[in-house]
Write a protein that binds this DNA or RNA. Structure first.
Length: 492
RNA sequence: GGGCCGUUAGCUCAGUUGGCAGAGCACCGGACUUUUAAUCCGGGUGUCACAGGUUCGAUCCCUGUACGGCCCA
């Protein structure tokens, strides 16, 4: 039957219910749910076939299936966590209620029930219902009961249908909540305060990315959706908040794929008086707390075992690139030589890359996807790290690390650059890159320099991709499986 | 941005070398007091994504478009 016909049929049924019975399920305001299905399942597990519990259970849920047998019927009732069978029998609830049920109740409807726990002859823990109340009606049919809902397009566009039909998906989002809760707990424990910084701002800085642009009518100016929280959070360290963090959405105007959604959730943390090694320890603590929150440190991700047990492997970018593609920076004498090497390796060369940029590009091409187990990659070139403090022994490199899991960047952190003079130069270098056509180069933020001129203490900072971390911890293949309403192109 | 794949009933999917469009579940009517993929009897509910083209005839072949997925940059 076409969906609009079912819709019409059920709408008519609702109308008749209102007229013939004087009952309007949409006028019901509440139901006192004294017990959950989980409570019943746990407490009455012991019941033997044909045995009945003494307690009156008062619970509620959505009817998932109905098996009608004349004067007795069986329903599967689901609440947010569990499903339990209900027995509807004429001699338990009386003629009136039973015929009301037969006439007016459909799968998808919400009902509240009162009844006693029993185990049926066939061994199924159930509730023998003596009273029920129709709490709300479904006018559209549920997806098919065996296969659930598979169509990715409907799953993402109408997540509510996905969540009804595929209980596992509900579990993924519960785990996501637990992960974020665990992260907050660790940070609070370390005296880090949660703050909120602007999403709309005149300058979108703190990362290499293109922003979304919007327009403020009253001010008559363009504003940008943030691409990172970094520059605002560091201003707060200047402002002596000591330790701050923010968990929130960032927005990057780029493509959508299995690892990228235009809006995504990031954690950023800044600790005064800490360096990147302290932050590395913190990162391990956060990842492990997140893993523990959802159950375990050894996880199966898409058939690969990932072991989230600290200490994570630590390796320098230079060594990794040397190991995986033979590029030994210490023996490279010129940028030309570096470019020639890269070209031989099949990289596309523009012609102005430095030996450091080549290092980073070789890393991306030849190393990244090999880093399956959690690995801290340390020591990124200064040229590609415009907000990170230089390594005092080798100023071409920074005290920075990224955490890779399953070939993907999950965290990025460094000792923060707090020298306003150097920061100005770095921004100017970025501005040059922008002029040369790099649309993702950092924007010059004069007020941020001003803030640094007031004095930023030595500070360690961290960014973590919450969606990606959640993917690994929930064995989700796509970032869209851990975002409730992923970005979709509008239909038509 | 490029390549490949997909789009058929509410859902999961068949199918047609180009000739009246199929199944299971769901849904509607009936029977049934222990089912749990209930069973039995009856009912097919569709713009075969959209727009063109080829053809006597297109859901099928061709072109384009939309949306989705995968891979690559």
């Amino acid at each position: 039957m076409p969906e609009d016909e079912i819709l019409k049929q059920r709408t008519d049924k609702l109308k008749r219910l209102r007229e013939e019975e004087g009952y309007d399920p949409f006028k019901v305001e509440k139901w006192d749910r004294k017990h959950t299905l989980g409570y019943v399942k746990e407490k009455y597990e012991y019941l033997k076939p044909d045995e009945m519990g003494e307690e009156d259970i008062e619970t509620a849920g959505r009817i998932m299936t109905i098996r009608k047998h004349g004067k007795a019927s069986f329903l599967d009732l689901a609440d947010e966590y569990d499903t339990i069978q209900l027995c509807f029998q004429v001699n338990a609830m009386g003629e009136d209620q039973y015929s009301f049920f037969k006439k007016w109740v459909d799968t998808g409807d919400f009902i509240g029930i009162v009844g006693k726990p029993i185990r049926t002859r066939r061994g199924e823990l159930s509730i023998l219902v003596k009273e029920f109340k129709l709490l709300s009606k479904a006018l559209r049919p549920l997806p098919e009961k065996w296969h659930g809902l598979k169509d990715t397009e409907i799953r993402y566009r109408q997540r509510y249908v996905d969540l009804i039909a595929n209980p596992d998906i509900r579990d993924t989002f519960r785990k996501r909540a637990k992960i974020i809760r665990a992260i907050r707990d660790v940070l609070e424990k370390h005296g880090t305060i949660e703050v909120e910084t602007p999403i709309l701002s005149p300058i979108a800085g703190g990362a290499n990315a293109r922003p979304f642009i919007t327009y403020h009518n009253a001010l008559g100016i363009n504003l940008y959706l943030r691409i990172a929280t970094e520059l605002y959070l560091k201003r707060l360290i200047v402002g002596m908040l000591g330790r701050v963090y923010e968990i929130g959405k960032n927005f990057r105007n780029e493509g959508i794929d299995i690892m990228h959604n235009p809006e995504f959730t990031a954690l950023e943390v800044y600790w005064a008086y800490a360096d990147y090694e302290d932050i590395m320890n913190l990162t391990e603590e956060l990842v492990v707390a997140a893993a523990d929150a959802v159950g375990q440190r050894k996880i199966n991700y898409q058939g690969t075992e990932l072991i989230l047990e600290p200490p994570f492997r630590r390796a320098s970018m230079k060594d990794l690139v040397k190991e995986y593609c033979g590029y030994d920076l210490s023996s490279i004498e010129s940028d030309e030589e570096a470019r020639a090497f890269a070209k031989k390796k099949g990289l596309e060369i523009k012609g102005n890359e430095s030996r450091f940029v080549i290092l980073a590009e070789l890393f991306e091409t030849f190393v990244e996807d090999k880093l399956i187990q959690p690995t801290f990659v340390i020591g990124h070139p200064t040229e590609i790290s415009p907000l990170a403090k230089r390594n005092p022994e080798n100023p071409d490199f920074t005290n920075r690390f990224e955490l890779y899991i399953y070939g993907n960047e999950v965290a990025n952190a460094f000792s923060e650059l707090n020298d306003p003079l150097d920061q100005r130069e770095r921004f100017m270098d970025q501005a040059r890159k922008k002029e040369e056509g790099d649309e993702e180069a950092h924007v010059f933020d004069e007020d941020f320099i001003t803030a640094l001129e007031y004095g930023l203490p030595p500070t360690g900072g961290l960014g973590v991709g919450i969606d990606r971390l959640t993917m690994f911890l929930t064995n989700s293949r796509s970032i869209r499986d851990v975002i409730l309403f992923p970005t979709m192109r509008p239909k038509q």
